[in-house]
Amino acid sequence: MTRQTKLGTFVKTASPQVIEILGTTGLDFACVDAEHAPFDRGTLDLMVMAGRAAGIDVFIRIAEINPAVILSALDIGAAGLLVPHVDSAEQAREVVAMSRHRGGTRGYSTSPRFAGYGSLGMKEALRAGENAQIVCQIESEPAVRAAAEIAAVPGVAGLFVGRADLALSMGLDNSRDPRVLEATRHSLAAAAAAGKIAGMHVGSNAERDEFAAQGADWFIVSSDQTLLRQAAQAIAG
């Protein structure tokens, strides 16, 4: 792994204490999975608040590309968004526009957490709003074909390969099928060539090291649920 490699894990349990615990580790970030786990707006707010208190960045994987969803996640102070099913550069540009005040369509208020609850001036708050990272998930064959164009969109911080949905889009049920792995390599290379985050989900450190050798540098390793289950099973023997 390179010095720039960032490591995190998915959080699927609706408890801010999970974020607090992860803040005591060497992880760089946590990604709250609002796409596949039961998080409402109030709970997401507590998860991000816990991250700030614990000193760990909290990303949110949003459930859908929707202006209100993006506005809410960024207003509560998420370090960035993991955006599912971005299939084209045009769609990526729309997502970026939804996330930006200047040159975009994101509504502005000085009162949310990202703006320091009114303690920041408008210029400083706008600068803070521009810092949120937008990472687009590559989860279909059209997205793979458009990976270079998506990565080139200004405001896109990186690409994140979602191998499970990518496999399904190919009519497969194995995320390690050679066709999926080739599409993964292609997408990671497109991100790296653009100087952007090259991210993916992996199940283990061994898999992390495998894909780091192919240029991936931003990993969500496993999840809180899986880590808990594995630790409990190790005790059970």
Rank of each mutant, 00 (worst) to 15 (best):
R3V: 13
K6D: 02
V11F: 06
T13W: 11
S15T: 13
V18Y: 02
V18D: 03
L22V: 05
G23M: 04
T25C: 11
G26M: 06
G26E: 12
L27T: 05
L27Y: 05
A30H: 02
H36N: 15
H36I: 06
D40V: 12
R41I: 12
G42E: 15
L44W: 04
M47N: 10
M49T: 12
M49N: 07
G55M: 09
V58E: 00
V58S: 05
R61Y: 02
A63W: 06
I65D: 10
N66S: 15
V69S: 11
L71P: 01
L71Y: 07
D75K: 09
D75L: 10
P84F: 00
H85V: 10
D87G: 13
A97P: 09
G104I: 09
Y108W: 10
S109H: 10
A115V: 08
A115T: 07
G116H: 07
L120I: 07
G121S: 14
L126V: 14
N131P: 01
A132R: 06
A132C: 10
A132G: 12
I134S: 04
I134M: 12
V135W: 01
V135F: 02
E139I: 10
E141G: 08
A143I: 04
V144Q: 02
A148E: 11
A148Y: 00
P154K: 13
V156G: 06
V156D: 01
A157L: 02
L159K: 03
G162Q: 03
G162K: 05
R163W: 02
R163Y: 01
S169Y: 03
G171D: 11
D173P: 00
R176F: 03
R176C: 02
P178Q: 11
P178Y: 08
P178S: 11
H186M: 09
S187Q: 07
A189S: 15
A190T: 02
A191E: 04
A193R: 10
A198K: 02
M200P: 04
G203C: 08
G203Q: 11
S204A: 07
A206D: 10
R208T: 02
A213Y: 07
G215C: 13
A216Q: 00
W218L: 10
F219N: 06
I220S: 14
V221R: 09
S222E: 10
S222F: 01
Q225E: 14
T226A: 14
R229W: 04
A232L: 15
A236H: 10
